[in-house]
């Protein structure tokens, strides 16, 4: 381990912890939100589904940095409340992630063959039961690899929180660099940490995909 990293390890480790907690919270909140959006749009709930379509379109067309600036600066200014960088970023990331995950979940829901739903109905299953026992498990299998891809993307995007001043991994690395100017070593080490985390996550995703491919 390079000496700069070893000397500043506790500080950088705290940054890594912030990155990880932000990523996990974002993934949880984003997935729950996305499930709501995907179901509402799949079931074509009037008004709500059109509104959510507009929301998804807006998020997919806006850079994550702008979403963070809206959550951290614009919304508090417009509605007169205070927030912290961490809370604003996590909320922004979750709102951003939800839009993308909702699209993947919708694709999963659409991939369930209608004949299976008809068969479930013919067997006397109620609509909620069909959804819970037949549609959702199958849709989840189709959507899972894409969702993991979104989580990997989000894990990388958490670095953007440093722009708002959140001392996550990238932010704390920049601070260490400001203290002892050794940018190549510091940025290189941080890049390696992101690389290991993202690779582990995407390999898990690929392994899951292979397992599902075998069982279906």
């Amino acid at each position: 381990m390079p000496e700069v990293i070893a000397r500043n390890l506790p500080f950088l480790a705290a940054g890594l912890a912030t990155t990880l907690s932000m990523a996990v919270l974002t993934a949880l909140a984003g997935t729950i939100l996305a499930a709501g959006i995907a179901l509402a749009r799949h079931l074509r709930i009037p008004v709500l589904s059109q509104g959510l379509a507009a929301y998804v379109g807006f998020m997919q067309g806006t850079p994550v940095l702008v979403v963070l600036l809206i959550c951290y600066i614009a919304l508090p200014a417009a509605f007169g409340f205070r927030t912290t960088g961490y809370a604003a970023c996590t909320a922004g990331f979750a709102l951003f992630l939800a839009a993308y995950c909702a699209e993947d979940m919708r694709a999963g829901l659409r991939a369930v063959p209608p004949s299976l739903i008809e068969a479930a109905t013919a067997l006397g299953l109620s609509r909620p039961k069909t959804l819970r026992l037949i549609v959702l498990p199958l849709a989840a299998r189709v959507a899972l690899p894409a969702l993991i891809g979104q989580y990997v993307r989000m894990l990388k995007y958490t670095s953007v929180a440093s722009v708002i001043g959140v001392p996550e991994l990238t932010g704390s690395a920049l601070m260490v660099n400001a203290r002892v100017f050794q940018p190549f070593t510091i940025l290189g080490s941080v890049a390696l940490v992101y690389f290991a985390l993202c690779l582990a996550l995407s390999l898990t995703g690929r392994a899951l995909q292979r397992r599902f491919a075998e069982t279906t």
């Binding site: 990997v152 990388k156 995007y157 958490t158 670095s159 953007v160 440093s162 722009v163 990238t170 920049l174 660099n177 940018p183 190549f184 940025l187 290189g188 941080v190 890049a191 992101y194 690389f195 993202c198 690779l199 995407s202």
Partner: peptide, 15 residues
Amino acid sequence: NVPLLLHIYVWYLGL
């Protein structure tokens, strides 16, 4: 597997 932000910083700060 490395964030874009770091790619930009590597060129700007690292090098």
